[in-house]
Amino acid sequence: MTLDLAGDPVALTAALVDFPSVSGTEGPLADEVFRALEGLKRYEVTRDGDTVVARTNLGRPHRVVLAGHLDTVPIAGNVPSRREGDLLYGCGTTDMKSGDAVLLHLAATVEEPAHDLTLVLYDNEEVEASKNGLGRVGRNHPDWLAADFAVLLEPTDGTVEGGCQGTMRAKVTTHGKRAHSARSWHGVNAIHAAAAILDTLNAYEARQVDIDGCVYREGLNAVAVSGGVAGNVIPDRCEVTVNFRFAPDRSEAQAEAHVREVFAGFDVEITDSAPGALPGLSAPAAANFVAELGAPVQAKLGWTDVARFASLGIPAVNFGPGDPNLAHQAGEYVDTRKITEAVQALRRYLAAD
C-alpha cells in the first residue's frame, strides 16, 4: 500500500485504519510511513525501531513537534474502515489514526512552514510504558525531540487540552488469620477488614484544581479486589487495588505520600506510577498556539505523552480530531468534519509567523 499524504486527509485516515497496527505489530505501517516521508525532500527521516522521526532544517527561529502514535488497541471486528455520511468507522479512527493523517497531510502540503518541524510517529503507546516508542526515543535520542513546543494529536474533539493528570496504582492490603469457616471465631477475616478501605474510598473527597484556567478533577478509586483461599477457609489476606488520578500540581512523590496518608494503618504498595504534566499555557509558544487556533481550552482528564515532553522541558498540548470518549470502543468512529477542521486550524498555525 502506498500512502498518499498530499491527497484527501479523510481518505488517508481510512487508508491508515485499513493497515492494521495493533501494539507490537506496527512494523509494516512504520515502513510505509517512513517511505512516504522520505519522498518529501525537505525532511530528514530517521527511525528507532518502529518509531519514525522526520525533521526539517530550514533555519527557522523556532521548532515545533507534531506527534502521534501508530498503534491501536486490539481489533474488534472493526477493520476495514467503513463510512456512513460524515462518520468514518473503524479501529483507530479516533485514537488516533485521524490525528496521524492530519500530521502526515500537513507534512506534505505545508511547503513553507513558519517553524522548523519535527514529526514523530511512534509505536506501543497503548501498552505498558516501558515499551512506548516516544519514551524510547527520549532515552536514546533526546536531541531528536528538542523543540520549543509540541502538539500531540491525541483526540480532543477540536479543543485544546492542556497538560494531563498523573496516574498511580497501589495495592492496599489487609491481613487476618486463617481458620476453618465452621469455626470462624478462631480466625480474623481479612476480606471483612477490607470494608474499612472501601469506606475510606466512599468517603473520599476529590480535589478540583484550576491551573492556567484548566480544571483538573482528581479521583481515588478501587479498581480490583483480590482475596480468599477456599470456600471453607477464613481468608488471611485481601488486596484492594486503587487507582489515583492526580492533578499535575502534585509530583509523584507527593501523590504517593497522599495515598499513604489516606490509607494510614494499612499495608500500601505502589505498583505503577506516571507523572502528570502542567498545562504550561503561560509559555509563549503555547499561548501563541491557543491564540492562533482560537479553540476552547480545557484540562486533559487522563494521562498522555505530553508528560514525556514536559519531562524534557518542552511545553506541549493535546489537540486532534475525534471524540476521546469513543476511543477503544468496537463502534469507534471519527466525524470527518473534525479531520478537515483540524487540518485547517493547524495549517493556519504552521503558516503564521
Rank of each mutant, 00 (worst) to 15 (best):
residue 2 T to Y: 06
residue 2 T to W: 06
residue 3 L to N: 05
residue 7 G to V: 14
residue 14 A to E: 05
residue 15 A to P: 04
residue 17 V to W: 07
residue 19 F to Q: 11
residue 22 V to M: 09
residue 24 G to T: 04
residue 30 A to P: 00
residue 31 D to G: 10
residue 33 V to M: 03
residue 34 F to L: 15
residue 38 E to H: 12
residue 39 G to H: 12
residue 39 G to E: 10
residue 40 L to T: 10
residue 42 R to N: 09
residue 43 Y to P: 05
residue 43 Y to C: 09
residue 44 E to S: 14
residue 50 D to G: 00
residue 52 V to C: 04
residue 59 G to Y: 13
residue 68 G to K: 02
residue 68 G to N: 11
residue 69 H to L: 08
residue 71 D to T: 14
residue 72 T to M: 07
residue 74 P to D: 09
residue 78 N to L: 04
residue 78 N to G: 06
residue 79 V to S: 02
residue 80 P to I: 03
residue 84 E to N: 01
residue 97 K to Y: 03
residue 99 G to H: 02
residue 99 G to I: 02
residue 101 A to I: 06
residue 105 H to R: 05
residue 105 H to F: 02
residue 114 A to Y: 02
residue 115 H to N: 09
residue 117 L to G: 01
residue 117 L to M: 11
residue 121 L to P: 02
residue 122 Y to K: 05
residue 124 N to Q: 15
residue 125 E to S: 07
residue 128 E to N: 14
residue 129 A to Q: 11
residue 130 S to T: 14
residue 132 N to V: 06
residue 144 W to P: 02
residue 153 L to P: 02
residue 154 E to D: 13
residue 155 P to A: 12
residue 156 T to V: 07
residue 157 D to L: 09
residue 157 D to R: 14
residue 158 G to Y: 03
residue 168 M to R: 01
residue 172 V to T: 06
residue 173 T to L: 11
residue 179 A to T: 05
residue 182 A to Y: 04
residue 182 A to F: 10
residue 182 A to L: 09
residue 185 W to T: 05
residue 186 H to M: 14
residue 193 A to K: 12
residue 194 A to R: 03
residue 194 A to Y: 00
residue 195 A to E: 08
residue 195 A to I: 08
residue 196 A to S: 15
residue 204 Y to W: 13
residue 206 A to S: 12
residue 206 A to Y: 01
residue 210 D to F: 07
residue 211 I to F: 02
residue 212 D to Y: 01
residue 213 G to P: 00
residue 214 C to Q: 00
residue 214 C to M: 07
residue 216 Y to K: 03
residue 218 E to K: 02
residue 220 L to S: 00
residue 222 A to H: 08
residue 225 V to D: 01
residue 225 V to A: 12
residue 227 G to K: 10
residue 229 V to N: 03
residue 230 A to W: 11
residue 232 N to I: 13
residue 235 P to F: 11
residue 240 V to N: 04
residue 241 T to P: 01
residue 242 V to Y: 03
residue 242 V to I: 15
residue 243 N to W: 07
residue 251 S to C: 09
residue 256 E to K: 11
residue 256 E to M: 08
residue 262 V to M: 05
residue 264 A to W: 01
residue 265 G to L: 09
residue 267 D to G: 06
residue 268 V to A: 02
residue 271 T to H: 05
residue 274 A to L: 15
residue 274 A to N: 11
residue 275 P to V: 08
residue 275 P to G: 06
residue 277 A to D: 04
residue 282 S to Q: 13
residue 283 A to D: 15
residue 286 A to M: 08
residue 293 L to E: 03
residue 299 A to N: 10
residue 299 A to S: 14
residue 303 W to D: 08
residue 306 V to Y: 11
residue 309 F to R: 06
residue 311 S to L: 14
residue 317 V to C: 12
residue 324 P to L: 14
residue 336 T to V: 15
residue 337 R to K: 14
residue 338 K to T: 15
residue 340 T to D: 15
residue 342 A to T: 15
residue 345 A to R: 14
residue 349 Y to T: 01
residue 350 L to V: 08
residue 353 D to L: 09
